[in-house]
Simulated assay, not measured.
Amino acid sequence: MSYVSAQQRYIQSLPKYLTLCEHNYVRALKLLPNERRIGQERKVQLGHSTFAVKVDDTAKYTTDISIKQEAGHLPSVKPLYLTVRMYHDAKVAEIVHHDFHQRIKPSYAYPNPNMHQKDEKYQLNAFLYDWLVACVENGRAVLNWDVNNGLV
């Protein structure tokens, strides 16, 4: 007698995901540039790496920011690049693009041709949480002193 097991579809825990996105929102606010206009950016030094947090787009209820690793990446590893959408009415932030790829689906069938994990969207946002915590707790803002402007 042979048994065929029905493959269970991945179902994301919405309360767990929203809690993660709420934590990301609070920490992402701390890394935004003082002026939240399109094109403004803030540099963050974390260890030997430098990251740029740039405001890409703003609307009434949302802000899109990009996080790009500018220095300190290993030659064999692509530098970090994330696009994060902050929803100000719901006070959540989530990754919408990563490494210049298409939008991230909520879940993927497994196995799939691109070898995405079933819960890839959750894992990416959990990575964003860890990265934001590291930046807020251990990162340093890169200061650009303008000697000709009389600041020094």
Rank of each mutant, 00 (worst) to 15 (best):
A109K: 12
A109N: 04
A93W: 05
P79Q: 04
Q69H: 12
L80W: 05
E94A: 06
A126C: 01
D57V: 05
K118T: 07
D64F: 08
Q123Y: 06
D57Q: 14
Y110N: 09
A134Y: 01
M115H: 12
Q123D: 07
L132M: 05
L74D: 12
Q102V: 10
Y81C: 01
A134E: 10
T62V: 15
Q69S: 08
Y122R: 06
I67H: 09
L151P: 00
L74A: 11
D119L: 00
G139N: 02
N148W: 07
L128E: 02
S66G: 10
N144G: 01
E137P: 02
D146S: 07
H97E: 13
A59H: 11
A59K: 15
M115D: 06
V152Y: 10
W131F: 15
S76V: 04
K78Y: 07
D89Y: 14
P75Q: 03
A141V: 06
Q123V: 09
L124G: 01
K118M: 14
V92E: 13
H73A: 10
H101C: 09
E120F: 07
T63L: 14
D57K: 15
A126I: 01
K78E: 06
G150I: 11
L132W: 04
V136I: 04
A141D: 02
A141R: 02
A134I: 02
H98G: 03
R85F: 03
L128C: 01
D89N: 13
L124F: 13
T63V: 14
L128I: 03
R85E: 08
E94R: 08
D130Y: 07
S66M: 13
Q117C: 00
L82Y: 09
E120A: 04
L132F: 10
V152H: 11
A134H: 03
Y61C: 14
I67M: 13
D57C: 06
D146R: 07
P75T: 01
Y129V: 00
R85W: 04
D130N: 11
L74H: 15
H116S: 09
K121W: 08
L128F: 03
G72F: 05
V92Y: 07
M86A: 07
H101T: 15
H97S: 07
H116P: 01
T63N: 13
H88N: 12
H101M: 11
K60I: 13
V152P: 11
N149T: 13
H101N: 14
L151H: 06
H73F: 14
K78T: 08
N138G: 00
E137S: 12
Q123A: 08
H73P: 03
M86T: 08
N138V: 01
D89Q: 15
I65Y: 13
E120N: 05
M86L: 11
N149S: 14
Q117I: 00
V142S: 00
I104P: 08
H73R: 09
Y108W: 06
K60V: 14
A93M: 05
L82T: 02
A126V: 05
M86H: 10
G150V: 10
P111R: 10
R140A: 11
L132T: 00
K121Y: 07
L143D: 01
C135H: 06
Q69L: 07
L128Q: 02
N148V: 03
K78C: 06
A71G: 03
K78P: 05
P75I: 02
A126H: 09
S107D: 08
N114I: 03
H97R: 15
I67V: 15
A134N: 13
L82D: 02
T62Q: 15
K118P: 02
K118C: 06
